[in-house]
């Protein structure tokens, strides 16, 4: 059961990666992507502050970036 699920997952990944080769807009279609709010992390200080709050109040951290907190608040 577990093996089957894993195979399906891997097949999905392979499909997704193969698709990447031709995936995505042409350079002249990147007008929206160039907007500041479409950056992956447009407000890094805000992200860092929120991650810091959740790091000190919850057991999970990381994912977006490194899980370390750099402080003793957890």
């Amino acid at each position: 059961m577990r093996t089957a699920a894993r195979t399906v997952f891997l097949a999905g990944m392979a499909l997704a990666l193969a698709g990447c080769a031709s995936l995505g807009p042409k350079p002249w279609e990147k007008d929206l992507m160039a907007r500041h709010e479409m950056l992956v992390d447009p407000y890094p200080l805000q992200t860092a502050a929120e991650d810091h709050v959740y790091f000190s109040k919850e057991a999970s951290s990381g994912g977006r970036g490194f899980a370390g907190g750099g402080c003793g608040c957890n």
Partner: peptide, 15 residues
């Protein structure tokens, strides 16, 4: 605004 890509001089198609 319209957004325009400046093509990289290094490799064609790069931005």
């Amino acid at each position: 605004p319209w957004n325009v890509a400046i093509e990289s001089v290094e490799k064609s198609g790069g931005m």
